[in-house]
Simulated assay, not measured.
Amino acid sequence: MVNAIKKEAIKKEAISGPILAVLPKFIGDAINTLSAIELIRKLYPDNEIYLLARPYMVELFARDKFYNIKVITDERFGEAKLSVFSLAKKLKQHKFSMAVLFRGSLSEALLAKLAGIKTVIGYAQNGRKPLLSHPLNLNVNHHYLLRYCRLINETHGNCFEQFDTPKLTYQQVESAVSDNDKINIGLYLGGKNKGARHYPFKQAKQVIALLNEKYLPNLILIGDRSEQAENQKLFEYANSLNMTCTDLTGKTSLTDLVDHIAAFDLLISIDSGPMHMAAALQTPCVAIVGQGTSPWSLVVPKTPNVIAATAEHSLQLNDSFLVQDINPENIVQRSNALLQTSITFIDKAELTLPQPNKQ
């Protein structure tokens, strides 16, 4: 399969003005573009780089301290509900020299064209090849990080050999729990809104019981408002075990959620946005991986602080039942492997071992 459509490499000196990066719609995907954003910054250290982001992501990326970026709200999806033509008119005022389309829709290519951006990089999918100055063929077997980085590297003459993992900026928060002498374990198992990724309640109870037996931790439940009913049941079960438990479900903004995940000693999460946040924050994370929105090999975080608990020996014919075959003991065993090497666990266990900087 030919991966790249042959095109003359972009000359860096020709890109003298600001650069626009159009982010994907989901937070995990948007976080994964940061590896490619870093390549853009290395190529163009003096250019302004703007991210076009959905309204709910703006605050998160606007406080960035790693990539020297600015953020524009994609008002097509905000209260204003701008048309692609109206948004293009606003973008045109910035006089962008180049646009990188990390989202694969036709509307993003049309937006860049209407905004008068001459150099437009993206994958030649959804009929948008004629609107791109530098189209690439998508290799669906490539990891998402590589997909995004290829857009930069191959259009600039393959000047990079490697990329780095994404990094998120966070702020320190006051503890959400009352007992700071215990380890803090975050738990995100999704709700019915997550379909086949949702970890069943019966097994979730077993995970909580095993964690309580092994660590007596502070348990912090996270999720969005649609998941409050499921997490309320977990909260009540944790209380029945006399665990220290805090339910933050539906009570945090996106930035608050990131800040809390950064403070966890461990996060146990289904394959979803919080998992990618933990990876970018270097928070140890056990990922519960059944049937995902993409094959696990394409989205697995490329960082040692995330390990997966999978249904690798499942014989289920229905993919939606895979997550049910992930054993609670398996999850806790992987949690222990991460906690044994976590600095915060070492501190609270009062062991005298080297203490690497989490940052």
Results as ranks from 00 to 15, higher is better:
Gln171Met: 07
Asn218Ala: 12
Thr119Asn: 07
Phe163Ala: 01
Leu145Tyr: 10
Val140Asn: 09
Gln206Phe: 00
Lys92Arg: 14
Leu52Cys: 07
Gln282His: 14
Gln282Phe: 03
Thr244Asn: 15
Glu38His: 14
Ile222Trp: 00
Lys113Ser: 14
Leu248Tyr: 00
Val120His: 03
Val140Arg: 14
Leu23His: 05
Pro45Val: 10
Gly290Gln: 06
Asn336Val: 00
Ile331Met: 06
Thr341Met: 13
Glu350Gln: 11
Asn158Asp: 09
Glu236Pro: 02
Gly290Thr: 06
His198Glu: 12
Leu339Tyr: 13
Leu234Pro: 00
Thr341Ala: 13
Tyr50Thr: 03
Thr169Gln: 11
Leu145Trp: 03
Ser342Cys: 10
Ile27Arg: 08
Asn141Glu: 12
Asn139Arg: 07
Ile208Gln: 04
Met275Glu: 06
Lys89Ser: 11
Pro328Asp: 09
Leu234Asn: 01
Phe26Ser: 10
Gly104Lys: 12
Pro304Met: 04
Lys113Val: 06
Ala30Phe: 07
Pro200Trp: 12
Arg76Thr: 08
Ala263Ser: 15
Cys149Glu: 03
Lys92Met: 00
Lys11Glu: 15
Thr283Lys: 04
Gln206Asp: 13
Lys129Tyr: 01
Val71Asp: 03
Glu174Asp: 13
Thr341Leu: 12
His198Val: 02
Ile37Asn: 06
Asp256Pro: 01
Ile72Cys: 09
Arg41Gly: 10
Pro284Lys: 08
Met277Ser: 04
Asn193Leu: 08
Pro217Asn: 03
Pro284Arg: 09
Leu146Trp: 01
Leu114Phe: 14
Ile117Asp: 05
Lys25Arg: 13
Leu43Asn: 12
Thr293Cys: 00
Gln340Asn: 15
Thr310Met: 13
Ala14Met: 03
Phe26Val: 12
Ile185Pro: 09
Asn153Glu: 02
Met1Phe: 09
Pro24Met: 13
Pro130Asn: 05
Asp325His: 15
Thr165Gln: 13
His156Ile: 07
Arg197Asp: 05
Asn212Met: 15
Asn357Phe: 11
Thr165Ala: 14
Lys42Ala: 12
Ile5Phe: 08
Gly191Pro: 04
Ser175Asn: 14
Phe96His: 02
Val289Ser: 11
Lys167Met: 10
Leu131Pro: 09
Asn158Thr: 07
Leu315Ile: 10
Lys167Trp: 02
Asp347Phe: 09
Lys81Asp: 01
Ile343Glu: 11
Thr246Asp: 03
Ser175Pro: 13
Gln125Arg: 15
Phe96Lys: 04
Leu132Phe: 08
His134Tyr: 02
Ala263Leu: 11
Ser342Leu: 01
Pro166Tyr: 03
Cys285Val: 13
Ala349Tyr: 12
Ala311Glu: 06
Lys192Phe: 05
Phe102Cys: 14
Val207Cys: 07
Lys6Trp: 01
Leu51Tyr: 04
Val2Phe: 04
Ala204Thr: 04
Ile326Arg: 11
Ala308Leu: 00
Phe85Glu: 14
Phe321Cys: 06
Asn193Met: 08
Val207Lys: 05
Thr283Ala: 07
Ala176Val: 11
Leu131Arg: 11
Phe160Trp: 04
Ala287Gln: 07
Lys251Pro: 00
Ala309Thr: 01
Leu241Gln: 06
Lys90Gly: 05
Leu111Ser: 06
Glu230Asp: 13
Pro356Gln: 03
Asp325Ala: 15
Ile183Asn: 09
His143Lys: 01
Ser86Thr: 06
Gly127Pro: 02
Lys358Gln: 08
Glu48Ser: 10
